[in-house]
Design a protein around this nucleic acid. Structure first.
Length: 829
RNA sequence: GCGAAAGUGGCGGAAUUGGCAGACGCGCUGGACUUAGGAUCCAGUAGGUUCACUCCUGUAGGGGUUCGAGUCCCCUCUUUCGCACCA
């Protein structure tokens, strides 16, 4: 018979709810612990990935609860965005309706898992009581010069009518509809995240983040040190600033490389309408897929501009080329090309026959233009570089930078790969940007008292070819808050990553009607102690949230520099070696598992399969193993309930125990110790569960409880009695049930963490291994405190050791306390 | 191309500080039981050798350090991930 998981799970879910165990009070004398899992997009179905992710968070929460913390684990929905809008379109409905339906469906499934979640703190980003404060934060950023509008070239999909991020363009086509992506010059709203670039590189205030994530962010931010140098356009005052990390190569500049988007190039295009070569080239390059164009294997191309600029250091005339390999939005958008010492410039100059000049000689001194097959990019000795000749090139970097600064040609500077964050989206289902465009006053912020700018309901999503917001005149047309004249609302909505950049703070004070959250609440709850989510957000959500947090800190809203102290990047649940997805048809429905085996079984399976940060391959058989495990526990306790209950009233005299009971006593304490280390220090729940299994096997192997004396009963009851406590973080329902069956009145988390005593971990005898020349040749049962000299003597008397030493003489004997005796021997003469 | 991580039985994984490799689970083999169940219980399960004791081999491959290496060092291979014209 299977244990009645269904009944048990419903019962305890009801009791937890009635007792409000997951509703964390804001004012408590207890220390807080804030556990957060990344909130889901409300697809309407809880999938195995959610179940896995949230089972980890739940285990952590319940452990911290047992430890005595005031634990908050909230949940919400990332409900704005294209998926929600498209879902509504395909279901011929409105996203507000479909989203709320989906949320209520997901909520039921969450409840079925029995997660410890504070639903009174629920947030949903598409609800006005939440997005209002996103608009408020936008305004604060605007007022602090962190928001600006910029015209630039963007990936544009004609079919979807919106800007696409680079990663949403596949082989030059829209990832969603497959139509060709164009480059469109658009005015877009940007967040000045680069202002925090330097600070975002600093992780000294996080406690435990995966090295991998920090490295990814550091690479993404991509700090490089170099110099900004101004070249002057020939016969003109126009300056062309460049950025280089190699000022030591400046005497080797033979051409200047500009991208077609460069303002100077745009100016020349306008000046020379008949220059077809230039026009065709620029048009072609600009319309190329950004991703393709930026790939390293794209062939370098360019056209000569018929113009020159002057190298300020030596006054040399330098050809200006328009090329496809320079990026407008990195550095200054212009490159001083040094073909002899940069591979890209080398390739380009060989193709177009541009001169080269060696200015750094290799250590062998044999670098020669005639024989070079690739650029020499290593350090060396300066040559052809005026008074810097003879200097080591590494040294020359700073010397030349100084020389440049002294002569006011430029200065030493730092550039980041990180770009400002384009947050404009030309879609309906997102947070409206609280801006009004007035013909007279220009860009005007919507006054606080008019927030939120509500999304109008009466749009027909998917029916218009442009942003649906443009088709709602009563929403679009407003009076300017400043001058009262006719004006229009901004129709761009915000990237949904904006919504998720501060939700963790809203949970601290989710119902606040006057502020995003009160500082008092934030002071108590922030920062998040443990954050859990997928690694795919390493350079997006996790970076954006850190940026927001630092901004909110600068406003005085939060203390501390980091939003997430500890980060756990959980693995995925795979099936047939691939991520589960509807299109592949390899999904497993958690509800199906819960109905047949219960949520406790699903949780134990997921947590036991591997350490939390690793991927797990789904296995029906292994799931059954988890189910059998819980059944075995249930049978053990239910079947021996009388003995356990009696035993709980007894105290054991350790001196009077049989060897079997001594072993059981040891097992209880040893298992608890291991469990505590695995759960709290290492967060490795698979081995914690393995420890429970081992202990369970030991308990089950003890038969005949009927004839036990009171000492044995006490030990037996303790051994069985700790199991519900140890099980609680992983299978809370059945743990509570068994705990109650044994007669305890309290809820399990109120029992505190189980403890162990060192005195019971001491064994009468221990087994030492004897090695001869690194190979195991025997074992020795001894008292733990046996002196090393005695061990050495005894080891040499073991039969097998004697045999192994025949014809050898002992050179050295090493005793590793509690572990082994290692004998080194060499052949006897 | 650059950078990072990883590679352990038939499978998921364990071995925390260099100290009994394969804990625990799945699967498999043999047996017991019968309320015939997605059951339970017992025994076994890295490979080879042996009736058995023993012995030999074994943590991707090769070398090294050490009394002792899955663990540390060097080289090679494979896989995964990230970045990929960032001047």
């Amino acid at each position: 018979m299977d244990y009645p998981f269904n009944e048990i799970e419903q019962k305890w879910q009801r009791i937890w709810q009635e007792r409000r165990i997951a509703n964390a009070p804001d004012n408590s004398d207890k220390k807080k612990y804030y556990v957060l899992s990344m909130f889901p997009y409300p697809s309407g179905v809880l999938h195995i990935g959610h179940a896995s992710n949230y089972s980890i968070g739940d285990a952590i929460s319940r452990l911290k609860l047992m430890e005595g913390y005031n634990v908050m684990q909230p949940m919400g929905y990332d409900s704005f965005g294209m998926p929600a809008e498209n879902y509504a379109i395909t279901h011929n409905s409105h996203p507000r309706i479909t989203t709320e339906e989906n949320i209520s469906n997901m909520r039921k499934q969450f409840d079925g898992m029995g997660f410890f979640l504070d639903w009174e703190r629920e947030v949903s980003t598409c609800r006005p009581d939440y997005y209002r404060w996103g608009q408020y934060i936008f305004k604060k950023m605007y007022e602090n010069d962190l928001v600006y509008r910029k015209k630039s070239f963007q990936n544009w999909c004609n079919q979807c009518n919106t800007v696409l991020a680079n990663e949403q363009v596949e082989d030059g086509a829209c990832w969603r509809c497959g139509s060709e992506v164009e480059q469109k010059e658009l005015e877009q709203w940007y967040f000045r995240i680069t202002k925090y670039a330097e600070e975002l590189l600093d992780f000294s205030d996080v406690i435990e983040w995966p090295e991998r994530v920090m490295t990814m962010q550091k690479h993404w931010i991509g700090k490089s040190e170099g110099a900004r140098i101004e070249f002057t356009l020939e016969n003109s005052d126009t300056k062309i600033p460049i950025f280089t990390t190699r000022p030591d190569t400046i005497y080797g500049v033979t051409f200047m490389a500009l991208p077609p988007e460069h303002p100077l190039v745009q100016k020349w295009l306008a000046e020379e309408p008949d220059n077809l070569e230039l026009h065709d080239f620029c048009k072609k390059v600009i319309n190329e897929d950004k991703v393709l164009r930026q790939s390293a294997d794209t062939v370098k191309e360019g056209v000569f501009s018929n113009r020159y600029c002057i190298n300020p250091l030596n006054g040399e005339k330098v050809q200006i080329w328009i090329t496809n390999y320079v990026l407008m939005d990195y550095g200054t958008g212009a490159v001083m090309a040094v073909p002899a010492h940069d591979q890209r410039d080398f390739d380009f100059s060989r193709k177009y026959g541009i001169p080269m000049k060696i200015v750094i000689q290799n250590p062998a001194g044999n670098l020669d233009l005639g024989t070079m097959t690739e650029a020499y990019i290593e350090p060396g000795v300066m040559v052809n570089s005026a008074h810097f000749d003879g200097m080591a090139s590494e040294e020359a970097k700073s010397a030349i930078t100084q020389w440049i600064a002294q002569n006011k040609w430029g200065e030493g500077t730092v550039t980041y790969r990180l770009r400002d964050w384009g947050i404009s989206r030309q879609r309906y289902w997102g947070n409206p940007i609280p801006i009004i465009h007035c013909p007279k006053c220009g860009v005007v912020l919507v006054p606080d008292e008019d927030l939120p700018v509500l999304l109008p309901d009466n749009v027909q999503v998917g029916k218009t070819t442009s942003n649906p917001l443009l088709s709602v005149p009563e929403w679009l047309n407003v009076k300017c808050p400043k001058c009262g004249e006719d004006a229009q609302r901004e129709t761009d909505t915000m990237d949904t990553f904006v919504d998720s950049s501060w939700y963790y703070a809203r949970y601290a004070d989710p119902k606040n009607e006057h502020l995003p959250f009160a500082t008092k609440q934030a002071d108590y709850w922030m920062p998040v102690d443990q954050y859990i989510g997928g690694i795919e957000h390493a350079c997006m959500h996790l970076l954006y949230a850190r940026f927001f947090h630092k901004f909110m800190r600068d406003l005085g809203w939060v203390r501390g520099n980091e939003p997430f102290l500890r980060l756990l990047t959980q693995g995925m649940v795979l099936k047939d070696g691939a991520k589960m997805s509807k299109s592949k048809g390899n999904t497993v429905d958690p509800q199906y598992i819960i109905d047949r085996f219960g949520s406790d079984t699903l949780r134990v399976y997921l947590l036991f399969a591997s350490p939390p940060e690793k991927d797990v391959e789904w296995s029906d058989e292994a799931l059954m193993g988890a189910f059998r495990f819980l059944n075995r526990i249930y049978r053990l306790i239910e079947g021996n309930l009388d003995a356990i209950k009696r035993g709980l009233q007894c105290e054991a005299d350790p001196q009077k125990l049989s060897p079997e009971m001594k072993k059981l006593l040891f097992s209880s304490h040893y298992c608890t110790k291991k469990w505590l280390e695995d759960c709290l220090d290492r967060m490795q729940y698979n081995t914690a569960i393995a420890a429970i299994m081992e202990h369970l096997n030991r308990c089950i192997s003890v038969k005949d409880t009927a004839s036990m004396d009171s000492d044995a009963l006490a030990v037996y009851a303790e051994a069985c009695g700790i199991i519900p406590q140890l099980l609680y973080p992983f299978a809370p329902h059945v743990a509570e049930e068994l705990w109650q069956m044994m007669g305890f009145q309290s809820l399990l988390h109120e029992s505190g963490l189980p403890g162990y005593e060192d005195e019971y971990l001491v064994q009468d005898t221990i087994t030492l291994v004897i090695q001869v020349n690194g190979k195991i040749r025997g074992k020795l049962e001894v008292a733990p405190d046996t002196a090393p000299e005695i061990l050495k003597t005894e080891a040499l008397q073991v039969d097998n050791v004697i045999r192994a030493l025949e014809g050898f003489e002992v050179v050295k004997t090493i005793v590793v306390p509690g572990k082994m005796i290692s004998i080194a021997a060499k052949p006897a003469k």
